[in-house]
Design a protein around this nucleic acid. Structure first.
Length: 763
DNA sequence: GGGCGGTACTG
DNA sequence: CAGTACC
DNA sequence: GCCC
């Protein structure tokens, strides 16, 4: 049930005009969103019940665990204390933020774990995943054996750590979470190194030097006592009503954060305001009115946005009792409270709800998930995006598309639509701050991860760059032979596409997703119907140049994906399509002809694979006696090879309709095969940058796993590059993006300067 | 080897 | 730009 | 720190 608290209700019988501060606007409505859910959310939640139940089974939760869920804190108290010491140590120095984050996750898990860890096997339960890595598992083992972790014992009384933690928290002993004092590790270290090590020293320094603290630090220092107190639900509601009073009546004010998850009290008040018009201006107007009324007692962050900004936001302190002359009922609410207000236009409401209603780790996890799928997700919508190293070597967003529309046409009105779009089950609010939601997202990510393809499985075949260039000169779209020639010449076509890698580039074949880079369609006679390069809108992270021969320049002269797809579909529609591993092509083309029209040479019962497997290369050699992918080669030749394979067994494989004519003459086939063999006989030009490539071959030989993959990728790329690398500036070319910015990059730079031999001598 | 969230303020 | 904050 |  949705509970809407109108403002009149909130005010009680104050009669007449209420407070002067709200005079210029009629009040917005407050939605206590947690107390209800939209029908769509409910649908999504119900729909998610199946997978969720399954997850819980996997998680190994039993009834006892569930019963304990309410009072878990102390179940692993001693172990928790050990890891808190480790966390405090790494949190006090800014050198290893990732290690710190990992410890933060470990501590969060131990705080919420509904059972006590008594043996190493407990770590295999899914909730303990963060405790079950290489390092942490050893620490837990030590704890189980000796009742303590030596490193933690050594660190927990480290005076520097203790002092820096104190400085970062202004000495506030808040048992929960961290106090947003605006003093981070850098400032605290600086203070510590300048001799401030105790609270009295800090206090003295602050009082004697009015410029010692920044504005925000001063606010948090002044209110440190009040702000560390919890806010009861009732007070949260009253504050929300006050805020609603200064927004237009068409606005919606929602209380987010822990209140929305039903907590009896909150650390601060998070309000999400949705309103039409200029959100920045609405926010400023509201803040102005509240300041004039003295309800706002401090400001930490204020967006005086340019008109048309995405969102308005304000952070600071407030106090109900400050309204007392006008609102006598507030007299008892004397404490100052931390208040965050964010104002969004309606189109961002669902994204803002997702952000504001979830915990930090959940937000990070779902945004990471979106990134892996080729999107970027924020509180301001969803876009296609690619992350990677830019040309300056900084890691970041390489490319970002426009805001995406909700495919259901509903303009992203619900959080459920976002989950659905990403292919995720709806994860309810209560699981977005307890580790369960994060674990589910990680499980989904693992299930969705693209498995690195073996070279043979890859539909990309070795290609000589020069043949690609030559093919580009072919007529892009030749006319179809007339229908009078019968179905064999116009009812059957062969397709082959080439792909480059986009997205992350850290494992397996380069790039985590495929993007169409070249599309070729040939007729039954082997004539080129379509052969074109295709622009890739995302930045290419790996050209797989040793396979595709493609460079950025090739793609730049291509046509758009839409255009290419339209051409391909026009040529394929209603015809039998021959190809090798067609599923790959159709997946990227997002086009799925009926299976009865497909003839895939990789799964033909009459083309038995021999010793060398069932790659196009192997089948061509075995059944056609033609060596392909050994010399000059391009996707036109691949399409032809598949086509001729099909034709060589056509009467066996495809004896029934849609057969309309007679079998092709053997001479015709021979002629084509001969021509194809001739075309394919030209030598491949390799050996560019050979010394550099060999350096990485050596590195690959003595590396393992992911490092090895990386070096192999670099080596192949260097060797297949159609130009010589001469200066480090050449490394900025898109084809060399897959080199990265780490050791491989550094080695190449050094070799260009000092020569390959010198570098190898050093190694 | 290399990534690990996205946004936006202050100073 | 670095530092810090919000979830 | 963990994970791909």
């Amino acid at each position: 049930m949705r509970h809407v608290v109108g403002l009149g209700e909130g005010r009680g019988g104050a009669g007449g005009g209420g407070a002067s501060f709200s005079g210029f606007l009629s009040p917005a409505k407050v939605e206590h969103s947690t107390l209800g859910e939209s029908p769509a959310m409910k649908r999504a939640r119900v729909a998610a019940t199946g997978p969720k139940a399954e997850f819980f089974d996997d998680a190994g939760l039993d009834d006892g665990d569930v019963a304990l869920a309410g009072k878990v804190g102390s179940l692993n108290g001693e172990l928790l204390a050990e890891f808190e010491s480790l966390l405090a140590f790494y949190a006090s120095k800014k050198t290893e933020p990732w290690r710190e984050r990992q410890y933060r996750k470990i501590v969060a898990v131990l705080k919420n774990l509904p059972f006590r860890i008594t043996c190493l096997e407990d770590l295999n339960r899914p909730q303990c995943a963060v405790l079950n890595g290489g390092h942490t598992r050893t620490r837990v083992e030590e704890f189980l054996r000796r009742g303590k972790i030596q490193l933690a014992q050594n660190l927990q009384n480290d005076p520097r750590t203790v002092a820096i933690s104190m400085l970062m928290n202004f000495g506030v002993q808040g048992g929960k979470g961290k106090y947003g004092s605006y003093v981070g590790t850098s400032t605290a270290e600086k203070w510590y190194d300048s001799g401030i090590t105790t609270l009295p020293q800090l206090q003295h320094r602050i009082e004697s030097d009015p410029t010692f603290l920044t504005h925000n630090q001063r606010v948090m220092w002044d209110f440190r006592s009040d702000f560390s107190q919890r806010v009861p639900r009732r007070e949260v509601e009253l504050i929300a009503d006050v805020i609603a009073g200064v927004f237009p009546s068409s606005s919606v004010v929602e209380v987010m954060g822990s209140y929305s998850r039903g907590a009896p009290d909150c650390g601060d008040i998070d309000l999400l305001v949705t309103c039409h018009g200029d959100v920045g201006r609405r926010c400023s107007e509201a803040v102005e009115a509240l300041t004039k009324a003295q309800f706002i007692t401090a400001t930490l962050r204020d967006s005086h946005h340019a008109p048309g900004a995405h969102s308005g936001q304000w952070m600071g302190g407030c106090r109900l009792a400050s309204l007392v002359p006008a609102r006598p009922g507030f007299a008892d609410y004397t404490l100052h409270r931390r208040l965050d207000i964010k104002v969004y236009p309606p189109k961002f409401r669902a994204f803002a709800q997702l952000y504001f209603g979830s915990g930090q780790e959940f937000n990070r996890a779902i945004r990471l998930f979106a990134t892996r799928q080729g999107y970027t997700l924020s509180d301001q919508g969803l876009r296609r995006a690619t992350r990677g190293k830019n040309e300056k070597g900084e890691y970041g967003t390489l490319w970002e598309g426009p805001l995406l529309e909700d495919p259901s046409g509903c303009n992203w009105t619900t959080e459920a639509s976002i989950f659905e779009f990403l292919g995720l089950p709806f994860i309810p609010l209560e699981d977005r701050d307890n580790g369960i939601g994060v674990a589910r997202l990680e499980a989904m990510a693992r299930a969705q991860a693209t498995k690195p393809a073996a070279e043979e499985d890859c539909f990309i075949v070795p290609t000589d760059p020069r043949s690609v260039v030559a093919a580009a000169n072919l007529q892009r779209l030749a006319p179809l032979p007339s229908l009078a020639e019968g179905w064999r010449s116009n009812g059957i076509v062969a397709l082959d596409c080439e792909f480059v890698g986009v997205g992350r580039n850290t494992s397996g074949i380069g790039g985590e997703r495929n993007a169409l880079a070249r599309a070729s369609v040939v007729s039954y006679s082997g004539d080129v119907l379509l052969d074109t390069f295709v622009k890739v809108e995302e930045p290419v992270t790996d050209f797989r140049i040793h396979v595709t021969g493609l460079t950025q320049a090739n793609l730049d002269q291509g046509i758009s994906f839409q255009e290419a797809r339209d051409h391909v579909i026009r040529l394929l529609e209603g015809r039998v399509v021959v190809g090798h591993s067609l599923a790959h092509d159709f997946k990227v083309l997002n086009y799925h002809p009926p299976a009865v029209l497909l003839r895939d040479t990789s799964s033909c019962p009459h083309l038995r694979p021999g010793d060398k497997g069932k790659s196009l290369k192997a089948l061509s050699e075995q059944h056609l006696g033609v060596k392909i992918q050994d010399g000059t080669h391009c996707s036109v030749e691949d399409a032809r090879a598949a086509l001729y394979l099909y034709r060589s067994v056509q009467d066996l494989w495809d004896p029934t309709p849609p057969v309309l004519g007679t079998s092709a003459k053997a001479e015709a086939l021979d002629k084509h095969l001969t021509e194809a063999a001739e075309n394919m006989a030209a030598p491949v030009a390799t050996g560019h940058n050979e010394p550099l490539a060999q350096h990485f071959d050596r590195l690959a030989a003595r590396s393992h796993h992911y490092a090895k993959d990386h070096y192999v990728r670099v080596s192949r790329t260097l060797r297949s590059l159609p130009y010589h690398l001469q200066s480090p500036k050449d490394l900025l070319r898109p084809e060399l993006r897959c080199v990265g910015r780490g050791k491989a990059h550094a080695d190449i730079v050094r070799m260009l300067h000092e020569g390959v031999n010198e570098v190898n001598k050093g190694a």
